[in-house]
């Protein structure tokens, strides 16, 4: 268990589920230790309440940092392989990378028939990056937080290592996908076509008046289904990983029994790690493919 003996299981869980937040505290704010902030300052939050009170312009340094770090690993590794790519016989690691690329490419080709140079690299980035981020869940829950606490010398440091258990991260990506959905919908179908898609389906009529009457209903339905796409995309990934992380935390509180249980759950979790990354990638492809389709 992390951070000392006197921690109840509830506190332990809460501590583990709190991000390391860097943000601005206003003047006169009473901090967690009773200290009053005399000057507005950028600082790390020392309690969940402080993190919330920092408002929107605060950063989850831990999850965002790991996310960027893992993204850099992905970019670096794949860039190395891409730079040395040749038509010669590929050796072990190159083979593995090419297998990933081939896997993503075949999935994209299967679903997405329009011509688009963004979709395949986008899918590859999503898949590999999300796999890497999810894999952080397989690191025993206390290892990296304890290391961070030891390095910084702060025994109460918040440190969340799995980026995909932070909704900010999953929504950051799904909103990126959402922007692409809207961009391609408008690019392929034009503004009129896109609005028509939102307002003229599923109820339509040959009578112009009835058609106009249907518009608000259609817009409501289609608007919800459009907005539901990024939300479901982000929440699915977040929910699965968050639940997995919670179970890891519960197991971590079991004393010695955690060892076999952790192993069993970790083995099962490998499936979730890969499956959720795959689902995120596939849904991205499907949504963008729908954005390219004419009705």
């Amino acid at each position: 268990m992390a951070s000392g003996e006197g921690l109840t299981s509830n506190e332990y869980m809460q501590h583990h589920l709190q991000n390391l937040v860097y943000g601005k505290l206003p003047v006169g704010y009473e901090r967690a230790d009773g200290h009053i902030v005399e000057q507005a300052q950028w600082t790390f939050a020392h309690s969940p309440k402080e993190a919330v009170d920092m408002g929107f312009w605060a950063y989850n340094v831990d999850t965002l940092g790991w996310s960027i770090f893992l993204g850099l690993i992905f970019s670096f590794v794949f860039y190395r392989v891409a730079k040395n790519a040749s038509t010669d016989v590929p050796s072990g690691f190159t083979n593995f990378i090419e297998m990933c690329v081939e896997f993503v490419n075949s999935n994209v080709k299967e679903i997405f028939h329009a011509k688009n140079e963004v979709i395949a690299p986008l899918s590859l980035t999503i898949f590999c990056w999300v796999v890497l981020m999810n894999t952080m869940d397989l690191v025993p829950v206390d290892v990296l937080p304890l290391a961070a606490q030891w390095i910084t010398g702060d025994p109460h440091l918040y440190f969340k290592v799995v980026p995909t258990t932070d909704p900010n991260i999953t929504f950051g990506m799904s909103i990126g996908v959402f922007i692409l959905i809207i961009y391609y919908s408008i690019k392929i179908k034009g503004i009129g076509g896109f609005l028509g898609e939102l307002t003229l389906h599923p109820f339509s009529s040959n009578n112009l008046f009835v058609k106009i009457m249907f518009m608000p209903f259609n817009f409501l339905l289609e608007g919800v289904s459009l907005v539901a796409k990024p939300i479901s995309l982000a929440l699915r990934l977040f929910g699965n990983l968050y639940a997995g992380e919670l179970i890891f935390l519960l197991i971590a509180m079991l004393g010695y029994w955690q060892l076999p249980l952790h192993f069993v759950w970790a083995v099962f979790h490998i499936l979730i790690v890969l499956l959720q990354a795959f689902v995120f990638m596939m849904l991205t492809i499907v949504y963008l493919s729908m954005a390219h389709e004419h009705h």
């Binding site: 991000n19 929107f56 950063y59 989850n60 900010n168 929504f171 990506m173």
Partner: peptide
């Protein structure tokens, strides 16, 4: 939610 979302969007 906080600005992490924007940071992640940019990184993405």
């Amino acid at each position: 939610f906080n600005a992490t979302l924007i940071g992640q969007l940019i990184a993405f």
